[in-house]
Write a protein that binds this DNA or RNA. Structure first.
Lengths: 239, 239
DNA sequence: GTGAATTGTTTACACCGTTAACTCTAATGA
DNA sequence: TCATTAGAGTTAACGGTGTAAACAATTCAC
């Protein structure tokens, strides 16, 4: 009647499919949050979508793909949260921006322990996360927010570059540099970036997984101290 | 015939039971290593022990208890490995001892990723790990090896205590202090211990979970640098 | 020897991932 | 327009899982 064009119909079926996929993600997410990682199951998601288990196979090739899609979805969400945090500070002050982003990373992780666990503690590297194929994997999307600010800090000078850079690293760090929008960042600075990144990420992980519970009820100040250190290492002029 | 004493029989049945428990742990461990965490299952362990699934319930109340026992077992093994590493350095040099222990922690984690994941990334604190009931939980057994060396370092002086200690921490740190064999360690020093511990643990975790793979093929030197920092923070005279 | 633990078993139920075969509906194309 | 085809969904089935109940057998204690 109104529109019998094939292209429009094609677009519509595509849209419906997209909505079903989004629905599955919404449900999987809720199961993860409310009942833990073990609850995000093919049958449970299918059930809540109003269809039988094999029906879900029209959308995901199996349980593995389902949770992989969820992981990717969560990386995007985290990246968006970090980007939003970054925008809460003036663009010309990368130091405060990085601090805000670091805080948001911790906040997000603490507020979403199940999600963070899924992202952080994938038992074994997915094999396609080998060094080199960095830019394509989902985790890059949120790491890049932090890395971008570090580049910004480097541009303003002040990053304390180490004198003795392990020679074996040149090749890999080179690889990372290529993904930094062609910035001529020296390898020594990239090394500092990686070290800083590892420190922030590690601090959050240790706290989220409760390995500080034996001593601290509020590790917040400890984390602030870590951020101070990292910013000092990156030569934040406002630190 | 030889011995019909009830006590001896009781001891024997007890020994047999202990052996069955040890057997279960051995099998669970192998399954964890060779086929991942998902493979350590009640039925699989029972099967390999030569009995039916419900039979295993005479030894473990359920799947949860089984893997909990495995976790405890692994904590003990890790603690033993760290203690052995500690003994590889002279007793009067706590700095090198701590370095050796830190290296062993990393080595163990990298050599046993599945085990480390199980220990580190328990999705949610087991609720009995709340601050206070520290000394009883299995993780204390291996954390104490590191903490003990830190106390030793403090005793030689040199630990840089922070001037501004968050007042809210006094109570919990006090709790930790009590488990340090009655040493009169100042709370500020204990704060440094916790911070150092978090840093080491976090560095290992980030590496084991592959979050440095995007940049580094060999994060070893980075870890050495972290140990340097920690030892400096603890005022190692030999650093 | 008798009673009671201890250690197993078989059976059963509900859930899981996944495959195969089938139906129905909607888009496609001559 | 009408036959064809691709897509979405179904039911049935297989092997795997955790766990509970009821039962049998062995071994310990007195």
């Amino acid at each position: 009647m109104t529109d019998t064009s094939g292209a429009a119909a094609g677009r519509r079926r595509h849209r419906v499919r997209e909505e079903a996929l989004a629905d599955a993600m919404r449900i999987a997410r809720r199961l993860l949050v409310e009942e833990g990682p073990a609850a995000v199951t093919v049958r449970a998601v299918a059930r809540e979508m109003g269809l039988t288990a094999p029906g879900l196979y029209r959308y995901y090739a199996g349980h593995r793909e389902l949770v992989q899609a969820l992981v990717s979805h969560l990386y995007d969400e985290l990246a968006a949260a970090l980007a939003a945090a970054r925008e809460r500070q003036p663009a010309d002050r990368p130091g405060p921006r990085l601090r805000e982003v670091a805080r948001e990373l911790r906040r997000w992780a603490l507020a979403h322990p199940n999600e963070f666990t899924l992202l952080f503690a994938k038992p074994v590297a997915d094999a396609d996360t080998a060094p080199g194929a960095a830019a394509h994997d989902p985790s890059w999307r949120f790491g890049t927010v932090v890395l971008g600010l570090m580049v910004e800090l480097w541009r303003r000078g002040g990053v304390r570059v180490p004198a003795d850079l392990d020679p074996g690293w040149a090749a890999q760090l080179e690889e990372v540099r290529e993904h930094l929008s062609g910035e001529p960042v020296p390898l020594e600075a990239i090394y500092v970036f990686v070290a800083s990144w590892a420190r922030l990420y590690g601090a959050v992980a240790v706290e989220v997984f409760g390995h500080l519970d034996f001593a601290l009820t509020d590790p917040g100040p400890l984390f602030e101290h870590t951020v101070d250190d990292v910013l000092a290492m990156l030569g934040d002029p406002a630190a």
